[in-house]
Computed example of a mutant assay.
Amino acid sequence: MEVLLTKSTPQTQYLPGDSVPWTLAPQVSAGGPGQTVRQLTVTDTLPASLELDVPCTRRRCPRG
C-alpha cells in the first residue's frame, strides 16, 4: 500500500500579515480493495516566517 499526500495553496504569493490557507489531500494508491490505513500521522512543519492560527485551524479541521 502507498499513501500519497499533496499540499496546495490557492495562490503562490502572500503579503506579511496575510492568512495562508492550505489543503492537505491524502490519497491511497497501490492498495487492494478493502485495505485500511491505520494509525497514520502527518506532520506538517511551518516555515519559520509563519505562525499557526489555532482558532482558524480548529474551525477548518474536521472533528475527530
Results as ranks from 00 to 15, higher is better:
Gln27Ala: 12
Pro16Thr: 06
Leu52Arg: 05
Asp53Val: 04
Asp44Ala: 03
Thr23Gln: 05
Thr12Gln: 14
Thr36Ala: 06
Thr23Leu: 04
Gln39Asp: 09
Pro16Met: 08
Lys7Asp: 00
Gln13Val: 13
Glu51Thr: 14
Ser19Phe: 12
Pro21Leu: 03
Pro55Ile: 06
Val3Phe: 00
Leu50Tyr: 04
Pro10His: 05
Leu52Ala: 04
Thr45Phe: 06
Val3Thr: 02
Glu2Gln: 15
Tyr14Pro: 00
Ala30Met: 12
Asp18His: 04
Val20Pro: 00
Glu51Phe: 15
Ser29Cys: 11
Pro62Asn: 09
Ser8Cys: 14
Cys61Gly: 14
Leu50Val: 06
Ser19Met: 10
Gln39Phe: 07
Pro26Ala: 01
Cys61Asn: 14
Met1Gln: 14
Gln13Phe: 11
Thr23Pro: 00
Pro10Trp: 08
Thr36Asp: 03
Arg58Asn: 12
Gly17Ile: 03
Pro62Cys: 09
Val54Thr: 07
Met1Phe: 11
Gly32Ile: 14
Ser19Thr: 11
Thr23Ile: 10
Asp18Gln: 08
Thr9Cys: 05
Gly31Arg: 15
Pro55Asp: 07
Ala30Lys: 15
Gly34Leu: 06
Cys61Val: 12
Pro21Ile: 03
Pro16Gln: 07
Lys7Met: 04
Cys61Glu: 11
Leu50Ile: 05
Arg58Thr: 11
Ser49Trp: 13
Pro16Arg: 08
Asp18Val: 07
Pro62Gly: 06
Thr41Ala: 00
Val37His: 04
Ala25Ser: 09
Thr12Ser: 13
Thr41Asp: 01
Leu24Arg: 02
Leu15Gln: 15
Gln35Phe: 10
Gly34Ala: 06
Gln35Leu: 14
Leu46Thr: 02
